[in-house]
Amino acid sequence: MSKNLSPDVSECLELLKTMYVIRYAEEQLGDDFAAGKLPGGVHLSIGQEAVSAGICAHLTDRDKVSSTHRGHGHFLAKGGEPKHLIAEIYGKEEGCCRGMGGSLHVADYSKGIIGANGIVGAGIPVATGAALANHLDDDGSMTVVFFGDGASNQGVLQESMNFAALWKLPLLYVCENNQFGQFSPTATVTAGVISDRAKAFDIPVEVVDGNDVRAVWQTMAGAADHIRSGKGPVFIEAHTYRIRNHFEREHLVIKTPYRTEEEVEKMRRERDPIEMLQEWLKDENLADEATCQAIDKDAKTLVDEAVAFGDAGTPPPLDVGEKYQFVGTSS
C-alpha cells in the first residue's frame, strides 16, 4: 500500500507551519488555563502535532475528520481557523461553535471537521456514519477518525471496524498512541498490540513514527490512495508521546506520579516533531535557519491575532442553549 512518495520542500514547510500553529495555540491555551482565563478545561496535544499535520495534509474540505478530547491539532490541521478555535475555547460567540461547545467539542462542518468528542471513543461511531455518507456519495471523499490508545479499548472500535471492513467504507482509523490513557501508562491497561486488532478484520495496518511528520505524511499518502480507490478502510497506529499532562489541572488532583520528569524531558529534547523536521531540512540543505524562523514567526503572529480576536469577542446571549437545540424545520 505504501506509496514511494515523500513531501517536497514546499510541502515540508507547510507541515512545519501547521505544527508551529498548533504548538503556539496550545502553549497559549496552557498559559491561559494557568492564568485562570479559560471558562473550562483543556487537553493539550503538544508533542503530537506531526500526526495531525501529516494526516490532514492529504484531505480536502469534502473529507471529514472526527476528533477527540485532545483535538485542537486536528481542528487546525484540517483547516479550522485559529481565531475560531481560540474564541470558542474562550467561550465567545465568535467561536467556531458560538461558544456552545468549547475545547471538547470544536467543530467546523464547512471544513469537514465534524466534531471533537468528550466521550472517549465516541467519535468512532459518528465517523462510521460519516464514512457511510461518503460511501453513498461515491465521490472519492473519505473520513478520518482520530482516537487514542485509550479509546482502542472501547467496544465501539471493534464494532466499527467490522462495519467498515464489511461494507468497504472509506474510513481511516488513526490511533494516536501517546503512551497514556488519562493517568495510566498504556501497557498497564491494554493487552497486545493495538493495531493487531485491525488485522482480525482484514483491515490493512500501518505502524508509523508519529513524531516524524514526513513518515506520517508518506504513510497517509498510501492510505488515502487505497481508501479513495474504494478498497475499504485502513488502520494507522502512530506512536507518539504526550508531553503535557492528561489535562491542565492534573497536578492538583494526581499526587502519585505515573511517569518521571526525566522521561518527559528526554522526549521533549530528543523527539520534538518540530525540531526533528527543522533539523532534517537543514541537514539536507533544503531550508536554512532564516526560512524556519520566518515560518515560526508567521505562526506566532497568527496565534497572537487569534488571541486578540478571542479577547475582543462577546459572550453569547443567555438564552441560546434552547435556540441551538433544534432547527424546527422539515424537508
Partner: peptide, 18 residues
C-alpha cells in the same frame, strides 16, 4: 451487525453529512 452503540452513533455522522 448487532452493534447498537455504533448504530446509534452512526445516525449522527450520516445525518450531519447530508
Amino acid at each position: 451487525p448487532i452493534s447498537e452503540n455504533t448504530l446509534t452513533g452512526m445516525t449522527v455522522g450520516a445525518a450531519a453529512c447530508g
